[in-house]
Write a protein that binds this DNA or RNA. Structure first.
Length: 214
DNA sequence: AACTCGGGGCA
DNA sequence: TGCCCAGAGTT
């Protein structure tokens, strides 16, 4: 896919949704970090339901740490992998307090050192909390990039590296949210809604049937 | 790169 | 019931 076509795709997204935002509910960088840790292999809906109560009662690292393992687990027990996530989040709180003055570090290496935080979560925080033009490639974006032909690659990291180079600078800050919401609601894994797609005429996948689908 | 982890939700 | 879901960690 050439640069002109890529630009056309992002211009289409920009026109349809100028200021996209994550659907995860949070009020601070710390809460965003926790919400994204919880969202691994879980639906955003179940995460939002749990974090609404959790963030109201324990909005800071210190308050969350004070909940203890059993306390925190009760808030997030409706989320998959909650046992592991609860331990990771408490340890993350401890590290934030002891090594980062209770703040979320604006630093990729420091973020990825936190338990439960990998490249995808770190990139979401860098993009959404700190305004850096990085793209966090999750399953949605991986699928959309490969289907459309925007950035074809065998691994999320390969797709991320291509997108970082290929996405025009003026779109890079918002590209993450455009792509993830497009994957969530239109370019869905099972039944993509090509007839409702705003980049239908620019897509290399258009109207194909996903492998494994009737 | 492939495998494991591990739990709710929805068809 | 079986398979998916805003991944991370280990081998």
């Amino acid at each position: 896919m050439n640069g002109e076509r890529r630009r056309a795709i992002f211009e289409r997204f920009r026109a349809a949704n100028p200021a996209p935002r994550t659907e995860l509910v949070y009020r601070t960088p710390f809460q965003l970090l926790v919400a994204v840790i919880l969202s691994a292999q879980a639906t955003d809906k179940s995460v939002n339901k749990a974090t609404a109560r959790l963030f109201a009662d324990a909005p800071t690292p210190a308050a969350m740490l004070a909940l203890g393992l059993d306390g925190l687990s009760r808030y997030i027990s409706a989320i998959g992998l909650y046992n592991t996530k609860a331990r990771n989040i408490l340890e993350t709180c401890r590290i934030l307090i002891e090594r980062h003055r209770g703040a979320v570090p604006h630093d990729r290496a420091a973020l990825e050192r936190l338990p439960g935080v990998g490249r995808k979560t770190a990139n979401v925080v860098l993009n959404t909390a700190f305004g850096e033009p990085v793209i966090a490639v999750d399953t949605h974006i991986f699928r959309v990039a490969n289907r459309t032909g925007l950035a074809v690659g065998p691994t999320p990291r390969a797709v991320e590296d291509k997108l970082t180079k290929l996405v025009p600078a003026e779109y890079r800050l918002n590209a993450h949210h455009w792509l993830i919401l497009h994957g969530r609601y239109v370019c869905k894994a099972r039944k993509p809604e090509c007839p409702n797609c705003i980049i239908r005429d620019l897509c290399e996948f258009r109207d194909k049937t996903p492998a494994g689908d009737p």
